[in-house]
Design a protein around this nucleic acid. Sequence first.
DNA 1: GTCTATAATAAGATAGAC
DNA 2: GTCTATCTTATTATAGAC
Lengths: 220, 220
Amino acid sequence: MTTMNEAPAAAPTRKGRKNNPEKTRENILQAAIAEFVSGGLAGARVDAIAERTQTSKRMIYYYFNSKEQLYIEVLEKLYGDIRNTESNMHLDEIAPEEGIRRLVEFTFDHHDRNVDFVRIVCNENINHGQFVKQSAAIRSMNNTVLTALDGILRRGAEQGLFRQGLKAIDVHMMISAFCFYRVSNRHTFGALFEVDFDDPALKAHHREMFVDTLLRFVRA
Amino acid sequence: MTTMNEAPAAAPTRKGRKNNPEKTRENILQAAIAEFVSGGLAGARVDAIAERTQTSKRMIYYYFNSKEQLYIEVLEKLYGDIRNTESNMHLDEIAPEEGIRRLVEFTFDHHDRNVDFVRIVCNENINHGQFVKQSAAIRSMNNTVLTALDGILRRGAEQGLFRQGLKAIDVHMMISAFCFYRVSNRHTFGALFEVDFDDPALKAHHREMFVDTLLRFVRA
DNA sequence: GTCTATAATAAGATAGAC
DNA sequence: GTCTATCTTATTATAGAC
């Protein structure tokens, strides 16, 4: 009688909500992303996360132990999303100029689509990057871009198309700066200069301008 | 007898700490900057601000009424600092290329020296720019750069040195993106790619590279 | 104008039933 | 594994003396 074999007709509104650990966990994680993104680590409220969830606050602590732990998992998830997508670019088989173009366009689109990622990185920097520094998972995942870019620059230089001695880290930083800033500072920049970053035409303009700027930088 | 004419020898350790409203206010404001900068609006603690102060927590509420009000004043102060310095550049009297160079260098140095400003802007964007949007003072102060830059671009185009049809807002955004990102993301970028942004040699390298990139962009 | 002490409340975390 | 109710601490804000 202590087993759960009774009351099939008891709660009609609770259809299909049987125990489902993985789904609950993912559900919490998604809610946490939304909450951390719109308030930072300090600004996020555990109660608010629970409200965004189909489950209760208790479950947050059950699965993640603390607010900080939850934050770290969010961080790792969002950083991981980039790596997964940026692996499939095959930048080593195309013409150097085309490689630069594609890399800029890819980075642009990725940041544009992942506002969440950008916001969480902003927050990390406000926290002096303390959690990124802690997470070995994150630190070890970010060098694929650099080697790909290095290949492009080297081939470009060999073919006489690009300048000699360009460093991948420099080019990468400039690409990131453009794509990141356009998302990270859209609210203040938008308010100050009355620019609407959601306008598709402006977005296309920026995208092409960034490609152009980078190409002008690398060309011999 | 209710006037304050007694006890000149009472407290020897409290020398010179007579009532000084302006100084107290400024003292609180400086402490608030430090605290808001290293934790954002939500992360900052009023107690912590008081501790950084030569006065008490009570005075914070006495002068600023609330944590939010204090935050807004910090915001306005830091934004104001830029305007004041960037007015004295006289960019309309020099050669166009030199104008671009100076503007980039100025923006670079300013961001480099004012980490506080950069952090507060990051925080503002996490808050969807809600306080910047509220402050009429801030919104009305930011158009001097744009007109100066516009002048440079127009003269450059007239002299056949620069391309036609370049927009000041675009150039300004790219300059800002470089200079801002280098400061705002130094912790995460530094941790991920093992870059030390405090290295003076690297700093000089970035500065020159940004000038170069912008010049390559505007040139005909 | 300034201080110490404290109220009021919000928020992170947990107990214990089911 | 999940829920509601609650404990505990931290934090914003204020009272009231001087």
